[in-house]
Nucleic acid binder design. Structure first.
Lengths: 193, 193, 193, 193
DNA sequence: TATGAATGAGAGTTCATTCAT
DNA sequence: CATGAATGAACTCTCATTCAT
C-alpha cells in the first residue's frame, strides 16, 4: 500500500542489518552471501559496501547495537553486593535481554565456530565470563560443582531459547520455567552446593 | 625411518577422517577446505575423492563411526524401566561417550548452523530428542520446569566440555562435577519438580 | 587556527591536482583510486566530479598546466638556427623544467604503459619527438650513432632525476653533472659522431 | 592444421607465461586482467590458479626464468679484473640479453611504478645496481660525471630498445649503434671523465 | 560548491568437484 | 590407489561514475 521505495530512504543501513541478521541466523554466517542480502533488499552488493566496510563489519555493527544492554547489566552487577538477590536480578534481566534479541542469540549459539575468530566473538566471550564472575563467588573454597551450576544456568538460558522453540506450550510460560531452573541452579551454588 | 609412507598404506581413509575432524573442530566445517585437508595429509584433493564421495560425506562418515555408541545407549535405555537408576546410568554412560569423542562434540557444539542442513545433523538431533524422551516422563502432568531440567542436564554436559577446557583444575574432576550436576537436575525432574 | 577549511575555499581544484599528482607519482595511476584522493583531501568522491569530468581528466589537467613550458621551449627552439649553442640552450632549459616539475616527470617515467593509451600520453610523446628533431640534424647522412646519442641525452636527463635521488651528493651538483653529460652527447652528435 | 588441444597438454604453464607477458607488455600489468589471459588461452581463470598462486606469481615466474642470464653475467663480471675490456664485454653481453628478452624489458621499462612494489621489482633493481657497481670504479675520487655516464649507458640500452622500435633502419644496425654509444660512455667514465 | 546514496562492471581469488590416466 | 589438470560457480571486495538534493 504505497510503502515502496519512498519510505526506504535513510533507513537502508538499518534494513541491511535486519535482513543480514535474519539470514545469518537462518543459514549461518559463512553460508550467507552478500549477494543474497542485497537481493532480498533489492539493492546491489555495492550498496552494502557503501554502508559497511566488510561483511564482518555488518555483523559487528549488529552486535554493537545489541550487546549494549548486556554491558549495562554487567556494570550494574559489578556495583551490587554479591547477594542472592543480586544474582536473581541478573538472571531475570538477562532473560529479558535474551528474549528481546532472540535472533542474535540464536545466531551466536549456532555459529560459535565463526564467532571464535571474529573480534566481536572474542569480546562477547569476555562478557559471558564477566557475567559468570558475578554469579559465582570468588571464594577459593567454592566447590567445582558450584561453578558448574553457574555456567549451567547461563547455558540453560541460552539453549532454552531455541530448543523450546519447537516444543509446545506458551512461549512466555516456557521462558519463566527456564528462568526458574536457572535461578535455582545459581541459588544452590550460592549456598555452596 | 620406516614410519613414513610405508606404514600409511591402507589407512588413508582413517587418516583423512582424523585430519578432517581435527580441522573441522578447529576452524569450522565451512572454513575448512578440502585443499587444506589434502595438504596436511600430503596427498592431492583428488585422492580424497577416491575415498569419499563428497565433502559432506567425510563428515558423515565420521559421525557414523562415532555415534554408534549413542545409538546403542538409546536402544538400551528404551528397554529399561523408567527408573531414576536408569536415568542416572544414561547420563553416566553419555558422559563417557562425550569424553571419548570430545573433538566431535566440540565440533557439533560450535557448528550447529552447519549441522542443521546436513542430513547427519538432522539425525543427530533425533538422537538427542530420543535421549530426552528417556530422561523425562511422558506424563502430561509433568511440569514444564521438569522438562527444562532435563534438557538443561544434556546441555550442561555438552557445554561443559569446552567451557571448562579453559578453566583450571583436573579434567577428570571437572567431568565428575558436571555429571553430578546433570544427575541432580534429572533427579529433581524425576521427582516432579 | 584559521588555516582550516576557511582558507581552502576556491582552491579546491588546485588541491585536487596537487594531491592527485602526489599519489599518482607515489603509487602509480591505476593503483591510485579516487577514494584515496578524496579521503586525503577530506572531501567526497563526488566533489572530485564537480571539478573534473573523469579520473583521466584530473591527470590531463595536471599535464596541461605543466607542459606549457615545454611547448614554449619547442616553439622557441624551432625558430632558432640549428647551432650547437641552440641545442645546449635547449638542454639547459629542459633540465630546469624537469627539476621544477620533478614529480610529474617521475610519474611519466614510471607509468609509461598508462601514458601510452591516454590522449595526453600521445601528445607528450609528440613533444619528445619534437625536441629530438631539434637536437638531431635532419641530414640523411647523419650516422645512426648520432641519433642514438640524442635520445640518450634526453633519456639520461629523464632517468637521472630519480636514479640519482637515492645516490649521495648534493642534488644541484648531480643535476649539473647530468646536464654536462647530456650536452656532451649532443655535442658529439652535432659533430657527426 | 591439426595443432589443436592435442599439442597443448603439458605446456599450459609455459603458454600462460607467454600470453601473460605478451599482454602485460602490451597493456600494462594492472590493466591486464586474468580473464583476458584466460580467454586468449581458451581456458578458465581457475586454470591459471592451478598453475600459479596469484597474478603476481605469474609475473614473478616469468622474471625468474629470464633474469638468470643477468645473474650469471653479474657473477662473471664480479670475478673479472675491472679493466675496460671487462666493461665492454659486460655491455656487449647485456645487449644480447636485452635483445633476447625484449618484451620483458619493454614491460619493465613501461611499468616501473608497478615493479616498485613487487618483490621481483626490488630484486631487479638490485641487479641493476650490481651491474652499475661493476661498470663504475669505486675510487672516491671518481667524478660525478663518470657515474652519470655509467647509468646513462645502461639507460640508453634499456630505452633504446623500444624507442628505436618505431624508427626506421635495420634493427641489428640500431642495436649496434646503441651498444657503441654505451661503450663509449663507459670508456670515458673509465678514463676518469 | 558540494554530499549522500547508489550502481554496474569487473577485479582477483577460492571452492567442491570431475575425469582421463 | 592416486595424481595432474581443469572447470563452473560463487565469493568478497573495489572501482569509476551518476544524480537528486
Amino acid at each position: 500500500m504505497g510503502t515502496g521505495k519512498q519510505q526506504r530512504r535513510g533507513d537502508t543501513r538499518q534494513r541491511i542489518q535486519d535482513v543480514a541478521l535474519e539470514l545469518f541466523a537462518e543459514q549461518g554466517y559463512e553460508k550467507t552471501s552478500l549477494r543474497e542480502i542485497a537481493e532480498r533488499l533489492e539493492v546491489t552488493k555495492a550498496a552494502l559496501y557503501y554502508h559497511f566496510k566488510t561483511k564482518e563489519d555488518i555483523l559487528t555493527s549488529i552486535f554493537d547495537d545489541m550487546t549494549r544492554p548486556i554491558d549495562e547489566l554487567i556494570e550494574w552487577g559489578k556495583e551490587q553486593p554479591r547477594t542472592l538477590d543480586t544474582k536473581r536480578a541478573i538472571l531475570t534481566r538477562y532473560s529479558e535481554i535474551l528474549t528481546n534479541a532472540a535472533p542474535l542469540f540464536r545466531f551466536m549459539q549456532e555459529n560459535q565456530a565463526t564467532m571464535r575468530d571474529l573480534k566481536t566473538g572474542e569480546s562477547f566471550k569476555d562478557r559471558m565470563l564477566a557475567l559468570l564472575d558475578i554469579l559465582r563467588d570468588d571464594d577459593p573454597a567454592t566447590p567445582m560443582t558450584a561453578q558448574v551450576r553457574c555456567f549451567s544456568a547461563l547455558f540453560t538460558m541460552h539453549g532454552g531459547m531455541f530448543v523450546l522453540k519447537d516444543a509446545d506450550g506458551d512461549p512466555e510460560e516456557k521462558r519463566k520455567a527456564i528462568l526458574e531452573v536457572a535461578i535455582e541452579l545459581v541459588t544452590q551454588a550460592h549456598h555452596g552446593a
